[in-house]
Design a protein around this nucleic acid. Structure first.
Lengths: 207, 207
DNA sequence: GAGAAAGTTTGCAGATTCGGCAAGCTTTGC
DNA sequence: GCAAAGCTTGCCGAATCTGCAAACTTTCTC
């Protein structure tokens, strides 16, 4: 969002954060979760281990940070959708935008590849699954707030916004999963429309 | 399930596991997550810290273990539902059974109260949210398998069973949440029917 | 039943992680 | 240009986690 808002200090912090996160992903993909020490990640990003701890509470948090940001981007995208748009259309567009959105990788060229491997890692490594889900849950909270706003409901009181947010979160997980494993890899958009279509139809039993 | 199947050894292990888990919940509710050491939990359950580590990989895992078992019970309950039953009816019943099911607490009388406080804790404490979600995800996997079995679909291939499992998981989270905060506390069954009804209807926007 | 086999519990030690604190730098704001 | 505010870092102690080997218990076999 605020790409270069608010000066040098803030920008540097973002850079450090992202550098740490990518370093964590790269090293873990390459060597495996428990053969990477925080010391290694910090070194790769050019900061001290103590600084690592200032940014992230654990190795897992650092690895999942990219996913976390992307998930929140979807919530942000939803807020940007035009007011009149029907809710499911808005959600679909927001999701597509969020997925397509900024996929910055350490090296420009193999960006997608790095991200793909990172995602696979987060989903496969048991030590990371909790962190991965937690990131999703955090994003869901923002998503619920955005939905409540848009539909004039109350997050604290009404079940609707939280339910939709939770369901969409679950759906996006499935979409990601399916997209990761399907071979050949289908366009994300197709998977997403299929899944959302089923939701809107009340999840009819297939045949 | 296998209450007293398979001898003394197995039973003792279950007892230790449950004792550790309840001890972890009780102490954490009373003193707060980071003012409880594994040493304390182990002492409360009458085993060594090393033994604690044989059962659980972390404090969080121990605290969430009860939730984990209950969530898996819902998947197990689904497998027990009669074959002809429509899928959503089966899921609803399984969920109700799973929720009602075995709520053993350290002290018989305040069982529900302990469980309620434990749940609140898991949902409120950031350090536990990841673990909580992870337990849910693990249960969801079993749930998906049960659904695939029942509907003759393929977990690895088809999106349907994973999607339904994910959505139901999300829905149960919302139900639990709503049930925890609503005042006066409504019957769980009512909340559950409301939420599942919305799902089956395709999540229509509330006016 | 007795004795062997298999599975558990425990203490110990080493590697890591985590977070408070205070000193040294850098960026911001006036 | 300077003071205030915010970051980074090293150091340190408290906790966690895991492999290993010894001491026990339960289960299995004859």
């Amino acid at each position: 969002m605020d790409t270069d808002r608010a000066g040098l200090r803030e920008r540097k912090k973002q850079e450090t954060r992202i550098a740490l996160s990518w370093a964590a992903i790269r090293l873990t993909v390459e060597h495996g979760f428990d053969r990477v020490r925080i010391e290694d990640i910090a070194a790769e990003a050019g900061v001290s281990t103590r600084t690592f701890s200032n940014y992230f509470g654990s190795k897992g948090e650092a690895i999942v940070a990219r996913h976390h940001d992307r998930a929140r981007a979807i919530a942000a995208a939803l807020r940007e959708r035009p007011d009149g748009e029907p809710i499911w259309a808005a959600i679909t567009h927001a999701a597509l935008e969020g997925f397509a959105l900024g996929r910055p990788a350490p090296n420009g060229q193999a960006a997608d590849q790095s991200w793909l491997e990172g995602l696979r890692l987060m989903v496969a490594e048991p030590a990371l699954q909790g962190e991965f889900q937690k990131a999703g849950a955090a994003a869901e909270a923002e998503f619920a707030a955005a939905i409540a706003e848009r539909t004039g409901t109350d997050v604290a009181q009404d079940v609707y916004p939280r339910l939709v947010a939770g369901v969409v979160g679950a759906a996006l997980n499935v979409v990601t999963q399916q997209w990761l494993i399907a071979e050949p890899r289908p366009p994300l958009e197709d998977v997403l429309r299929d899944v959302f279509g089923r939701l809107a139809a009340g999840l009819p039993e297939p045949r």
